[in-house]
């Protein structure tokens, strides 16, 4: 079966164990920091509001996560799709 999986797909799906580990890392950080989903939503909205002044941001495609970073810190990562570079407004 694995042989056939190669056709028609550019990349094999990640092993489920790797997905589990990654998801756990993310969820445990928010569990431990007690960052509520509401607070995360507020942060996301603020980021969008600022960027929207200059860029055409795809609001629905945004992902904001907090994950363990280097040196015992946590890292906020935002993935923000932009529809097209909007003209800089003066």
């Amino acid at each position: 079966m694995r042989f056939f999986r190669g056709f028609g797909r550019q990349e094999a799906p990640a092993a489920s164990s790797a997905v589990a580990k990654q998801r756990l890392k993310v969820v445990l950080v928010s569990d431990q920091m007690r960052v509520s989903p509401g607070l995360m939503a507020a942060i996301r909205d603020d980021i969008v509001d600022v960027l929207s002044r200059r860029l055409d941001v795809d609001r629905d495609g945004i992902e904001v996560t907090i994950t363990p970073g280097r040196n015992n810190t946590d890292e906020l990562t935002a993935r923000i799709p932009i529809r097209r570079a909007a003209r800089a407004r003066l």
């Binding site: 092993a15 489920s16 164990s17």
Partner: peptide, 17 residues
């Protein structure tokens, strides 16, 4: 057997988390 197939987290994964 599941760890070998990538279908279950391994011991070091859980220890790390």
């Amino acid at each position: 057997d599941m760890v070998k197939r990538g279908d279950m987290m391994d011991v070091p994964d859980v220890e790390e988390i």
